[in-house]
């Protein structure tokens, strides 16, 4: 067909029934009608950078020690942390100090995950939830009350957030992938502490194993 073969290609494509588009969300109408087929979301990669969580140790203690390294490294300056000395009789975290105030402004956050890499205690990691929508600036600031994981170790499902099944399982993919500093010689080595509800998480499979899975 030479020059005109391309026209046939596009015309044939127009007839295809299979679309690459995923129906992201059917909106309120379809949700009210329980039309799940109109409301699909694709599976997200495990390392996706989304909303943060503040993790806890297996005994329920908070991991954050209020060192402010995350606030220091943040290129968007969206994190505000204030530490305070632990009450010796009733400590919040195992160390000397704990994160007393922890706020993240999601109007500024660029989800670079540098805070996750900077954190010495794996206290802050990111979930897969990336959909943010606010009607005023104050709502965009998540405080410790919203960021801290619940007693089952899973991120809190805040009323305005759209969590899907299984999404709250993966909260620390990027932390494990980059510990320590993403050095390849540490691939497969566990270099992190246990988490409430999950215990010590297994490292990601090695690169060649993952390559084989993909093929």
């Amino acid at each position: 067909m030479g020059y005109f073969g391309g026209f046939l290609v596009t015309l044939r494509q127009h007839g295809y029934k299979n679309k690459v588009t995923t129906q992201y969300s059917g909106g309120r109408v379809f949700r009210r009608k329980n039309r799940d087929d109109k409301d699909q979301k694709i599976d997200k990669p495990e390392r996706l950078h989304g909303r943060h969580v503040l993790n806890r140790y297996e005994d329920g203690m908070e991991k954050c020690i209020g060192c402010e390294l995350c606030a220091g490294v943040c290129p968007a300056r969206c994190i505000y942390v204030r530490g305070r000395d632990n009450d010796p009789d009733n400590p919040t975290s195992p160390g000397e100090r704990f994160g007393f105030v922890y706020e993240i402004n999601y109007l500024r956050c660029i989800h670079c995950d540098l805070c996750v890499e900077a954190c010495p205690t794996e206290a802050i990691t990111e979930t897969k939830l990336f959909e943010f929508s606010f009607t005023n600036r104050k709502d965009a600031i998540y405080t410790k009350a919203e960021l801290l994981v619940g007693d089952d170790g899973k991120p809190q499902h805040l009323p305005w957030e759209d969590w899907r099944e299984g999404e709250d399982e993966h909260t620390s993919g990027w932390m494990r992938a980059t510990a320590p500093s993403g050095d390849a010689t540490f691939e497969g080595t566990v270099a992190w502490s246990g988490e409430l509800g999950y215990g010590v998480r297994a490292p990601e499979p090695a690169q060649d194993v993952r390559d084989e899975e993909d093929n």
């Binding site: 596009t10 015309l11 494509q13 127009h14 295809y16 299979n18 679309k19 690459v20 588009t21 129906q23 909106g27």
Partner: peptide, 14 residues
């Protein structure tokens, strides 16, 4: 809509 069809997409539908 047509160009979306030719690229196997859905196009505006909301």
């Amino acid at each position: 809509k047509v160009i979306a069809g030719m690229q196997n997409r859905v196009g505006p539908n909301k």
